[in-house]
């Protein structure tokens, strides 16, 4: 038993089993990590396409991250994240053996896995992590996989080996041409579509990448599924923070998604809503970095 002093000075006692220990930490890109944590209940029910929510500490934000791998027997889950703000920064500073404050999952509707024929997997940046379990399941369902993996440069490519193993062909795209082919994921798609008769595409990555890649799919007449990543709070359908517009209707991505028909998504709305707290987040992050001595004092901008 642990005893923790709550914010209001009232003692809390917690059982060990309520803690979520970090078993493994691996740096997989200059800006990102892969973690393996103990979360037996999440591992027990996880399915491809689902995510979970974590909190780093008592004052922390709830952030959603996609489930990459899970092991029922050892009760662990894997996830990959890139450092972009305060919470992911704090997360990146945790070490093997440390504990996360809260872990809730699995959440969201699992992917609808079926046989399509040839499926194109279009992954941008850390979208590759979210793609991996879906790729496994699609492969198991008998699909032929063609993967197009994109990143800004060689160092930022993640899970290439794992995805390569599942695919009959992989196109690696880098923005700067430091590895593979110079270009974006949508350029890779155009190449692939000349070689393969693509029945369906999965598109996962930053919203802006999904927007343009889906447009390319539409031009080529390829039906597609995307995994949306709006800002979430509870992630259980209670608040409406994650609302997205698909086919003219409002959905809550955390319970109705995160996967939707990409051609129906209102991308501009998603992009607008994703940047809603940009100033606040920047302010919070800079204040935090300044306190840590990473940024010189007095340089941060007011929110």
């Amino acid at each position: 038993m642990f005893v923790i002093l709550g914010d209001d000075g009232i003692l809390f006692s917690l059982k060990m089993s309520n803690f979520f220990q970090i078993i493994k930490k691996e740096k997989i890109a200059p800006n990102g990590f892969l973690f393996r944590i103990k979360a037996p209940e999440v591992a027990l029910h996880a399915k491809p396409g689902q995510f979970f929510v974590l909190r780093v500490n008592e004052r922390g934000e709830r952030i959603p991250l996609t489930l990459v791998r899970w092991n029922r027997r050892s009760g662990t889950i894997d996830f990959a994240f890139q450092v972009i703000g305060k919470t992911t920064h704090l997360l990146s500073k945790l070490k093997e053996g440390d504990f996360l404050k809260d872990v809730l999952g699995p959440l969201g509707r699992p992917s609808e896995i079926k046989y399509y024929g040839t499926v194109a997997l279009l992954a941008g940046g850390f979208g590759a992590a979210a793609m991996l379990p879906i790729a496994n399941a699609l492969k198991e369902a008998g699909n032929n996989l063609v993967t197009i993996l994109g990143a800004r440069s060689k160092d930022y490519l993640i899970l290439e080996k794992e995805l390569r193993r599942l695919s009959s062909k992989i196109y690696v795209m880098t923005d700067d041409g430091s590895y593979g082919i110079k270009g974006f994921v949508k350029d890779g798609l155009e190449m692939a579509s000349r070689e393969y008769d693509i029945a369906h595409a999965y598109v996962i990555g930053p919203a802006i990448m999904m927007k343009f890649t889906v447009a390319a799919c539409q031009e080529l007449g390829i039906p597609n599924t995307v995994s949306l990543n709006p800002i979430m709070v509870d992630a259980t359908g209670m608040c409406g923070s994650c609302r997205v517009n698909v086919g003219g209707k409002t959905y809550f991505a955390c319970v109705d998604g995160p996967e939707f028909d990409g051609s129906q998504v209102d991308w501009n709305l998603l992009l607008n809503r994703l940047s809603a707290y940009l100033n606040e987040e920047k302010h919070s992050y800079e204040l935090f970095l300044k306190k840590k001595g990473v940024l010189p004092r007095g340089k941060e901008k007011k929110a």
Partner: peptide
Amino acid sequence: TRVNLMKAYLFPGYDTPIK
């Protein structure tokens, strides 16, 4: 929820923002 559960009224002392 942002204000009460996540204590956004204490932002940036707590990490969840509010407009």
